[in-house]
């Protein structure tokens, strides 16, 4: 026990300019303790972002449902009318893909910009900075649940069959959430140093959208394109979601294991990169 802590239960902060040793305490325990201490702020940030986003709009929170529905209707019109796609319940097929994709793409855009966006707070107040990318993802998870309610409605309206496998949706979401959080931490930290990253990300997301089975059917993919679905982690997440909602089957164990491992790996990478870079943010913001 160090002599300082014997005096009383008062907090003692010791800051050293050097990098410090990147042991379990610095990399894991201390940041998590901080996050727990600031759980109220995490909650407030999520609530505030939702409140502020729709405060001055007429339709308010309804936009979280209207926007993906519109996206779906446009795509449905294009693909059924112009390209003559004839899949049963194609609207549901599209919509389940779109809302899953949106969870990722909006998490990475909002999460990626979250540190630069919180510059005002970060340069003035001491708080656990990792909460910004994390709350951006939580925020989009809230959006996702609203959109999911719309999906249930869509199923009723289009008389799509309800499969019991839909109950597994939370389990399909879990690896994706880990992936989104890791990705948001990574991008938010790196874009402090490379501002171009946000523009690159936008373009990359545009390309990734087509490499993900949102409007196309991965089982109908020619063999020479199979690698796309296996390198693109998003393809797995969207595929798993559609399996449980649309196809009424559970993904096999190895698919789920790989998806979970990918999500976990992304989370760990994002966390480590973030924790290592965060001290330098204020010098670059």
């Amino acid at each position: 026990m160090n002599p300082e802590s014997t005096a009383a239960a008062e907090p003692v902060v010791h800051i050293r300019a050097d990098r410090g040793n990147w042991d379990f305490h610095n990399l894991v325990r201390a940041p998590i303790q901080e996050l727990v201490q600031f759980k109220e702020l995490i909650r407030n940030t999520v609530v505030r972002d939702i409140k502020v986003r729709y405060k001055r709009s007429v339709l308010g929170i309804a936009w979280t449902i209207i926007a993906p529905l519109m996206q779906m209707i446009v795509m449905w019109t294009v693909f059924t009318k112009a390209f003559q796609v004839s899949m049963p319940n194609y609207a549901l097929y599209l919509f389940s893909g779109i809302i899953t994709w949106n969870l990722f793409s909006q998490s990475s855009v909002a999460g990626g910009a979250s540190i630069l966006g919180a510059a005002g707070l970060i340069t003035k107040i001491k708080l656990p900075r990792v909460l910004f990318p994390l709350t951006a993802v939580i925020n989009n998870l809230v959006n996702f649940s609203f959109a999911f309610a719309a999906l249930l409605l869509l199923m009723v309206v289009t008389r799509a069959p309800f499969h019991w496998t839909m109950l597994s949706v939370p389990f399909m979401l879990l690896p994706l959430i880990l992936f989104c959080m890791g990705w948001a931490m990574l991008v938010s930290a790196l874009s402090v140093f490379f501002r171009d990253l946000q523009y690159i990300l936008e373009i990359a997301l545009g390309a990734l959208f087509y490499a993900t089975p949102i409007f196309w059917d991965p089982t109908a993919l020619p063999a020479k394109w199979h690698w796309v679905a296996s390198v693109n982690p998003l393809a797995k997440y969207v595929f798993m979601m559609k399996a449980s909602i649309y196809h009424g089957v559970l993904p096999n164990f190895s698919t789920y294991a790989i998806a979970t491992f990918t999500g976990l790996a992304m989370f760990v990478i994002g966390w480590i990169v973030f924790q290592r870079l965060q001290r330098k943010f204020i010098y670059w913001i």
């Binding site: 902060v13 010791h14 800051i15």
Partner: peptide, 13 residues
């Protein structure tokens, strides 16, 4: 604690 110093060290109790 907002700004991490480039050199030196400090204690705040």
């Amino acid at each position: 604690g907002v700004l991490h110093p480039t050199e030196g060290e400090l204690w705040v109790r």
